[in-house]
Design a protein around this nucleic acid. Structure first.
Lengths: 111, 111
DNA sequence: TGGGTATACATCTGATTCTTATGTATCTTC
DNA sequence: GAAGATACATAAGAATCAGATGTATACCCA
């Protein structure tokens, strides 16, 4: 099952914040791979979507970065700021509530 | 709880198809009101979003219309075409699967 | 040693989708 | 007769993402 792309829209920020919430410290590529693995290739985050989102969250003050060098290769680690932590909880509550509402509206049976 | 608007994006077509699937015959305004009621004002479909979507689904051959007059006022009823019926099932399966995947990824507890 | 694949960052164009605003008109209720 | 509800519709602009493209390093293996 490949999800039509418009479905994933709107959930990316929440996914990113939740990943950082659970794992403390991650870099961009790691997030895409982690999501890909956990969802068994069902949710594939494109880089063209991820990086602008990370930059946006950073400029909103929700994320902080530290650059690390692995050999000569740059790696940018992201962590949640205090504001980011509360925003992550807020966004998760919202998404959870939304999913419950949708589930009820559409009479979806739980897996 | 008011959902940030981007969350609802991508689900509108599926919601419309499901509503018609359950209720056989509905007109636009009725869909907005039904969704509003069932979700207790949590999902509010704007007319600027709904009507273009209905027109698009119709031009894709998924919906058929019959116009009815209530006094002098026009009312456009929509029903699913055979193609629309199978598309509705398909879209519902996709959304259900997506919700299950998201629920697992984000470790959401069922309501 | 060269080629393919993976890692890792980034930006840009265009497509899609929705919000908000606007418009028209009728009906109901007070 | 005015407000609010019913009922359709379109249009401009914002937001977000897919897909393409670009750069560069690292690893594997034939």
């Amino acid at each position: 099952m490949i999800y039509s792309t418009e479905l994933i829209k709107g959930t990316l920020k929440t996914i990113v914040l939740k990943m950082l919430s659970d794992n403390k410290k991650m870099y961009g590529y790691e997030i895409t791979q982690h999501v890909k693995e956990v969802t068994k290739d069902k949710i594939l985050i494109s880089e063209g979507a991820l990086y602008p989102t990370l930059h946006a969250l950073e400029s909103e003050g929700l994320l902080k970065t530290e650059t690390e060098y692995i050999g000569k290769r740059v790696r940018k680690y992201y962590t949640l700021s205090p504001t980011g932590k509360s925003k992550a909880k807020e966004k998760m509550n919202e998404l959870t509530d939304f999913i419950n509402t949708l589930t009820f509206l559409l009479d979806i049976k739980h897996a």
